[in-house]
């Protein structure tokens, strides 16, 4: 039993698996932020469509959120403070899942606005959208819990510091 749990532990914390998850989630967030940064007005409409936030904070959210996505995506890909970035992506995924669930519960037929401002016809929200975000949330938490700086900028800095000493 001990051997089995040790094997399972080795698999879930495998550095190569964590690296793959980091690169994948980093890519997802980089892809998601691009359109929102280029077209803030369109993203503000997407945020307003959810009809959850008060008018006073819709634009602020549309301006700020894509830049947090950009920073988190770059940090995950580069391996710089990856666990802090994973904490940010986990938090954002929770927000997205709650927002989409509320929209679905209200019966709104709309686009999620996750990657580009598509119409409800091309990219309607559904339970599949919630499931997809839930998978990305689990991946983010996985990185948050198991990442040990095995690859990336932090790893290089650690090695350089050790070499100097």
């Amino acid at each position: 039993m001990n051997r089995l749990s040790r094997t399972a532990s080795a698999v879930v914390s495998c550095p190569w698996l964590i690296l793959a998850l980091r690169l994948y989630i980093g890519y997802v967030f980089l892809a998601a932020c691009f359109h929102k940064i280029v077209h803030p007005a369109m993203f503000a409409v997407d945020v307003a469509t959810y009809d959850i936030l008060p008018l006073a904070v819709i634009n602020l959210m549309a301006i700020v959120l894509p830049w947090i996505e950009l920073a988190a995506g770059l940090m995950l890909v580069a391996g710089f403070r990856a666990r802090a970035a994973a904490l940010l992506t986990s938090g954002m995924m929770v927000v997205f899942i709650v927002a989409i669930s509320i929209a679905l519960a209200r019966g709104l037929h709309m686009s999620c606005g996750c990657f580009a401002s598509q119409g409800a016809v091309e990219d309607p929200i559904s339970l599949l959208t919630v499931a997809r975000d839930a998978v990305w949330f689990i991946m983010s938490v996985w990185i948050l819990v198991f990442d040990r700086n095995s690859f990336g900028v932090d790893h290089l800095v650690e090695r350089l510091s050790a070499w100097k000493v």
Binding site: I37, H39, P40, A41, A44, A48, L55, A56, I58, N59, L60, A62, I63, V64, P66, W67, I68, L70, A71, A72, M75, R81, A84, A85, L87, L88, G91
Partner: peptide, 27 residues
């Protein structure tokens, strides 16, 4: 995470203020 979120928010707001296609902070 808090530092990165705050810094990103600041960069986003400054970038929005500087560009022509920027939107008002409050609709």
């Amino acid at each position: 995470a808090i530092v990165v979120a705050a810094a990103s928010a600041a960069v986003g707001i400054l970038f929005n203020l500087a560009r022509e296609e920027g939107i008002p902070l409050v609709a």
